[in-house]
C-alpha cells in the first residue's frame, strides 16, 4: 500500500485515525504538522495521488444497491461506453470527485466562507463558516451543501444534500442523495501542502464509512485559464458520441 496511507491502529493521540474498509487511514505523522491555519491558494493533486477515491486494490464497501450501480458503471466503462458518466455530458463532477483531478483547485478564504473554484469545467463550491445549520429546504446539488468550522489548524467540512446520479470518482463508484461527506482539510509543511481526509457515509449505498487521504501541492503564482467543457467536447467529439461509445 502507498506509504502515505499509514496503517496504524495505536496512534490515536497523533491525529485523526479513521476506520476504512480494508484498513485504517491515518492523518500524517505529527512531524509534518503545520501551525498554519490557511487553506487558501491554488492547489493541484500531488503527482503520486490517484484520481480514484480508494487506494488501488481497496474494494468499496458497497451495499447490494450500491454494488449494482457500481457494476453497471464499471461494465460500461470496460466496454468503452462513457454515457453513464455525467461528466461526459459536461455535467458537473460535484464533490468530492472534483477534488480528484489533476486540474488546479483555487481555494479562496474570506471571513465567513471558503470558496473552491475548480478549473475543470469552471465550477464553484462554497463552504459556509458563519455558523449556519444545514438547510432542510436546500435544493440538492452536485456539490451538496457544505458547512465548515475550524478545529485548531484543521478545517472540517460537513456536506449533505447531494443531487442523485453522481459518481464519487471516475471508476464509477456511485454517490447518492443520502451521502454525507466529512472532510478534514489542513495545511502541512508550512502551508506548501494540503492534506484532505474525506469520509463518506451513505446507508443506502455503503455498508460502512469509507475514508481516503489525498495530498495537494501549492502552486504559488499560478494563473488559471478558462476550461469550458463544452468547448473541449466540440473540439473532440469522439469524447461523447451519441451512442455512448468512444470512436477513434
Amino acid at each position: 500500500m502507498n506509504g502515505l496511507f499509514v496503517i496504524v491502529a495505536g496512534l490515536f493521540l497523533a491525529g485523526p485515525v479513521i476506520a476504512q474498509a480494508g484498513g485504517v487511514v491515518e492523518s500524517s505523522a505529527s512531524t509534518e504538522r503545520s501551525p498554519v491555519r490557511k487553506v487558501a491558494g491554488i492547489w493541484t493533486l500531488a503527482a503520486d495521488q490517484s484520481v480514484t477515491f480508494g487506494a488501488a486494490g481497496v474494494k468499496p464497501p458497497l451495499t447490494p444497491a450500491g454494488q449494482a450501480l457500481f457494476d453497471a458503471n464499471h461494465a460500461s466503462l470496460q466496454q468503452g461506453a462513457v454515457s453513464l458518466d455525467p461528466t461526459t455530458s459536461c455535467l458537473p463532477m460535484g464533490a468530492p470527485r472534483n477534488m480528484y483531478t489533476h486540474f488546479p483547485i483555487h481555494i479562496v478564504e474570506t471571513p465567513d466562507q471558503v470558496t473552491m473554484i475548480f478549473q475543470s469545467g469552471i465550477r464553484t463550491r462554497r463552504v459556509y463558516l458563519d455558523g449556519r445549520p444545514h438547510d432542510p429546504d436546500f435544493d440538492p446539488s452536485y456539490n451538496g451543501e457544505s458547512i465548515g468550522r475550524w478545529e485548531g489548524d484543521v478545517l472540517v467540512v460537513d456536506t449533505v444534500n447531494f443531487k442523485e446520479g453522481g459518481w464519487l470518482d471516475p471508476s464509477g463508484v456511485p454517490r447518492g442523495p443520502q451521502a454525507r461527506l466529512v472532510e478534514r482539510i489542513r495545511p502541512l509543511d508550512g502551508g506548501r501542502r494540503l492534506e484532505i481526509l474525506t469520509t463518506i457515509t451513505d446507508p443506502a449505498l455503503f455498508t460502512a464509512p469509507w475514508t481516503t487521504r489525498k495530498l495537494y501541492d501549492l502552486r504559488p503564482g499560478a494563473m488559471l485559464e478558462d476550461f469550458v467543457c463544452v468547448d473541449r467536447v466540440r473540439a473532440n467529439p469522439q469524447w461523447a458520441s451519441t451512442d455512448g461509445g468512444i470512436s477513434q
Binding site: L91, P92, T124, R126, D139, S141, Y142, N143, C229, V230
Partner: peptide, 9 residues
C-alpha cells in the same frame, strides 16, 4: 443564496 447552475442540464 448563491445557487448551483448547470447550463448543460
Amino acid at each position: 443564496k448563491m445557487m448551483e447552475y448547470s447550463c448543460e442540464e
